[in-house]
Write a protein that binds this DNA or RNA. Structure first.
Length: 657
DNA sequence: ATTGCCTGCCC
DNA sequence: ATTCTGC
DNA sequence: GCAGAATGGGCAGGCAAT
């Protein structure tokens, strides 16, 4: 299939919202592909080149793509439409015009590249690099038509485009950024506007079409049967080996082998019995060395709610570290580690080789949380300290200064046998045998846990963990099987309502200093995030005129769509052409629009962190909006001193353990 | 050599 | 990570 | 409730600019 044909179908999908309709359309698409194309297309549809556990990245994203588009624009004499034309088009499209306040006039500074400024501005207005690419390509077409000298289009097929994308990703070393741009430019030249649009979205890693892995699996079933009957089987297979391309090929292979070209494109239902399916997916069994999709936590507010859902539970302390899935093949003499997103990180944690060598088994797969500790005191370290271990260089030295402790809490396979379908109680027993207290070391320990059915006991245990500086508890249904993702009620963390309890009970009142234009579905709000600040009074001077507002965080979540639009409208009343004099922010955080101080927002966060970037010197971990404080003036916002006090309270907590 | 921008990936 | 939203 | 798509702070690494 040509990439153009693929892109045309994606274009159709873009105007489809209903999931079932998306599934059906995807199924039709899948049925038109040959086996090679299926594999590759599955990756591309997820904005990837390979399954996640095979490391290959574009190293080409927003900024470099934008630079490439400037090159393309220059080559094609592209000029963005004027503001007036944009307004007209938006009105015609029935868009909510009132949301749009005109953007500040483009400042063309002497010595800057005008076209680059204009393309960048157009990107901020469109909120999508793919759409911008199509627009530039469109200009190319009309330009070419005008001259009635249309270039021959090569109309590459999917595999050709894929190969070119691979080549772009594989370039590295000195001069590679230029080379990537040139290769991408050459690819864009080969494609029509729609094809170019989706190639760019693939490079950006997001298709923004309202479907992803789960819907793709629905579509696989739909491609074969016209319904979702095999979805569950497919999802289980995917959990065992997270490679959607190979899964798709294996699943559809029976059909593909017997299919004639004429049948491609028809939604023919082939009668494949369960036996045939299981044969096709036979190779999909948990395998030592190939990562399993990890189980994740749901969230509930209280211990009562949890016990109501799961009558008998195990509660474990929740460490703030790095999730590691550890594969031990002790017969072959190796240990491998994968992150939550299945990146292989074996080389970053050399102590694991020794750490797991003494386990009494032939092989196993373990689920664990890795936390750094102080080798002098044994004290558990913060996430910020732990994450410095995720590195490629000087690993040995860092392993000495920040050794890790693995808290093992689950066992997915043992001695060539998958345990994912065994109940947790059983898996815990196996784990107890494999890793008894006598086998524990500085590097490897079993996560201790509490078995209970009593909400009060659970609540107390949670409070105790918070008290020693941990993140609370993870609560697991005692009889539950191991399943990837968050579905069902198997693993739950306690997330108390904002501002009640937990690690950081206090909320913070911030001044809105500016805003950033949004991308994707936030584009029409005219804002995607806000820049927040807190107060700092200059100690050297004592008069009230020395108060400054220093940046402390950006805010991009916790607002409803309605609140985004409301706040943007309020912000428009407070626009400032330049940065107000009392503001202090690093240039890297320059917002798209400045606001005079006035708007105050109440913000919740999980933690105060010391910040290398924000002007306040501290920042907020996981900031989100609690409430618009129309009742407060900006002079009443939180101060840096108060934040630093909270920050010290946290570290004192850590020191207790 | 050093710095700073950009990217990818942890949470 | 947190959060919101259409289905 | 699922699935998807917006968005956060901050770390290391790669490359380009100085």
């Amino acid at each position: 299939m040509t990439f153009h044909q693929l892109a045309e179908q994606l274009e159709q999908l873009e105007s489809t919202a209903a999931r079932l309709a998306i599934t059906a359309q995807l199924a039709i698409l899948l049925n038109q592909l040959n086996p090679d194309e299926i594999i590759v297309t599955c990756y591309l549809l997820q904005g990837k080149l390979l399954p996640s556990y095979q490391n290959l990245e574009f190293q080409l994203a927003q900024k470099l793509v934008l630079r490439t588009l400037v090159l393309l624009a220059r080559r094609q004499n592209y000029l963005p439409p004027t503001q007036a034309a944009v307004k007209l088009a938006t009105q015609k499209a029935g868009g909510a015009m009132s949301l749009f306040a005109p953007e500040p006039e483009l400042e063309i500074r002497a010595g800057t590249d005008q076209l680059a400024e204009m393309v960048g501005q157009r990107f901020r207005n469109l909120g999508d690099l793919g759409v911008l690419t199509a627009e530039i390509k469109q200009a190319q077409q009309s330009h070419a038509q005008k001259k009635s000298a249309q270039k021959p289009t090569t109309n590459p097929d999917i595999l050709s485009v894929y190969q070119q994308l691979l080549a772009i990703a594989r370039v590295g070393g000195t001069g590679s950024q230029d080379q990537k741009q040139q290769l991408l430019l050459a690819l864009l030249e080969e494609l029509d506007p729609t094809g170019a649009k989706f190639v760019i979205r693939m490079v950006m890693g997001k298709l923004r079409l309202g479907f992803s892995t789960m819907t793709l699996m629905d579509a696989l079933s739909w491609a074969k049967h016209g319904d979702k009957r095999d979805r569950e089987i497919l999802e289980l297979a995917y959990q065992k080996k997270a490679d959607i391309g190979k899964l798709a090929a294996a699943y559809l292979a029976a059909d593909l082998g017997t299919k004639t070209n004429a049948e491609f494109g028809t939604n023919v239902s082939v009668n494949a019995g369960t036996a045939e399916i299981s044969a096709a997916l036979e190779s999909y069994e948990v395998e030592i060395g190939v990562p399993v999709m990890p189980a994740l936590c749901q969230r509930l507010n209280t211990a009562e709610e949890i016990i109501a859902k799961m009558p008998r539970v195990y509660a474990e302390p929740k460490y703030d570290g790095l999730r590691l899935q550890i594969h031990c093949n002790l017969e072959a003499g190796w240990v491998k580690a994968f992150t939550r997103n299945l990146d292989e990180v074996t080389a970053m944690f050399p102590e694991l080789q020794q750490g797991f060598a003494h386990l009494k088994c032939r092989n196993c797969i373990l689920d664990a949380e890795a936390v750094g500790y102080d080798p002098e005191t044994g004290q558990i370290l913060s996430f910020q300290a732990t994450i410095t271990r995720k590195r490629k260089h000087e690993v040995a030295a860092k392993a000495a200064s920040v050794p890790i402790r693995c808290f093992v809490f689950d066992l997915m396979a043992l001695d060539d046998r998958s345990l994912v379908d065994e109940p947790l109680s059983q898996r815990k027993q196996w784990l107890q045998k494999l890793l008894p207290p006598s086998a524990e070391t500085e590097t490897v320990r079993q996560t201790r846990y509490l078995e209970t059915s009593d909400p009060e006991t659970l609540h107390q245990f949670h409070e105790t963990q918070l008290g020693v500086g941990l993140e609370g508890v993870v609560v697991k249904q005692a009889d539950s099987i191991y399943r990837s993702g968050r579905k069902g009620w198997r693993w739950v963390k306690i997330k108390e309502p904002e501002g009640t309890s937990g690690k950081l009970a206090d909320t913070i009142d911030c001044v809105v200093m500016g805003y950033y234009l949004g991308k994707g579905k936030r584009t029409i709000f005219g804002v995607g995030a806000f820049l927040l600040g807190v107060l700092e009074s200059d100690a050297a001077k004592t008069d009230s005129g020395s108060i400054r507002i220093v940046s402390v965080a950006k805010l991009g979540t916790g607002l409803t769509d309605e609140e985004f639009q409301l706040l943007r409208r309020q912000a428009d009343q407070m626009r400032s052409a330049t940065k107000p004099a009392i503001y202090e922010i690093p240039t890297s955080l320059q917002p798209d629009g400045w606001l005079e101080p006035g708007l105050v927002l109440e913000i919740a966060a999980d933690e105060i962190t010391t910040s290398p970037t924000h002007a306040a010197g501290v920042s907020l971990r996981f900031p989100r909006l609690v409430k618009v404080r129309a009742d407060k003036g900006w002079e009443q916002a939180t101060t840096v001193a108060e934040l630093k006090e909270l920050c010290q309270l946290q570290s004192r907590l850590m020191a207790k353990d």
